[in-house]
């Protein structure tokens, strides 16, 4: 009987601990303080406070993001530095032929995606169009290692800066499209992004602790897959899990969704490259 009571208390306490984000602060390399919690942007009706996905992870996973020596994504950042300096394509050029160095891209990732020449443009588009038009090099695969490593390197230059994507003007119709998708209940399980990440963040769904589904840490190093995961790959996985036909990586639908989801993170620090379970 006593055992049963103790067990009940333990269960109760542990479920309290699991519910919601934890109270930890994220400071990287002992100096870079990250905003993992802030007032929700006014265009967000679902909640008042937004939290980084980092706040929902176990201490063990969290610790891998506290020091760059422990962050397994940094291997890919190093690879991208090599790629940055490597000549590729018919024009005999490397990124470094036009850009002094990755530092030139401070702040860029914090404001992406954005509309350029009427087209909603994500980082993969920028990289592949430079490769094709300037270097005469082959396009990189959307979720391939080269592409996501380069995005991690560019994203790292904005680490700590608040996400700040524009949703008005030319971006407005794309943003509306993404929002519509966010609230659509796809698949045979009829689940929307909002069902899991707005109404149930902090709750367990089977063995998974649901976060608010922010993209400020992407590409993230996912321990389960032992590689960098692109935003579109994550969206694809989440939609597939509703027993739905997903959209393709690099589709216009996912560009629009990417803009909308990024706008939900406005105010949180860019954490690229983050580590998730």
């Amino acid at each position: 009987m006593r055992v049963a009571i103790v067990a009940t208390i333990v269960c109760f306490v542990s479920s309290l601990v699991l519910a919601g984000p934890d109270d930890d602060n994220l400071t990287i390399n002992g100096e870079l303080e990250m905003i993992t919690e802030t007032v929700a942007p006014t265009h967000l009706e679902g909640f008042d406070v937004i939290y980084s996905g980092w706040r929902f992870r176990t201490d063990e996973t969290q610790s891998l993001q506290i020091d760059d020596f422990d962050n397994p994504a940094m291997i890919f950042v190093d690879k991208a530095i090599d790629l940055f300096n490597t000549v590729d394509g018919t024009e005999g050029k490397a990124c470094v032929s036009c850009h002094e160095g990755p530092e030139q891209f401070v702040g860029l990732s914090a404001s992406m995606p954005k509309v350029i020449d009427g087209k909603l443009t994500v980082m993969e588009d920028l990289i592949n169009s430079h490769r094709a038009e300037v270097m005469g090099a082959e396009a990189w695969k959307w979720s391939g290692e080269d592409m996501q490593s380069m995005i991690a390197l560019i994203g790292l230059q904005s680490r700590g800066m608040p996400v700040n994507v524009a949703i008005d003007g030319e971006a407005a119709p794309f943003w509306e499209q993404g929002k519509e998708m966010y609230y659509t209940r796809y698949g045979q399980l009829e689940l929307s992004c909002a069902n899991c990440h707005e109404q149930n963040y902090g709750n367990m769904i089977r063995a998974d602790h649901l976060s608010q589904g922010h993209t400020n840490g992407f590409p993230t190093y996912r321990l389960k897959q032992a590689k960098l995961i692109s935003r579109h790959n994550r969206f694809r996985g989440c939609i597939r899990d509703t027993r739905a036909e997903t959209f393709a990586e690099g589709s216009d639908e996912f560009r629009a969704l990417e803009l909308y989801v990024a706008s939900r993170s406005n105010g949180l620090s860019v954490e690229t490259p983050a580590v998730r379970q």
């Binding site: 009829e190 597939r240 739905a244 036909e245």
Partner: peptide
């Protein structure tokens, strides 16, 4: 259903 898939294949 909206965009009914073939189980968990994503197709």
């Amino acid at each position: 259903f909206i965009r009914l898939g073939d189980a968990y294949t994503g197709k």
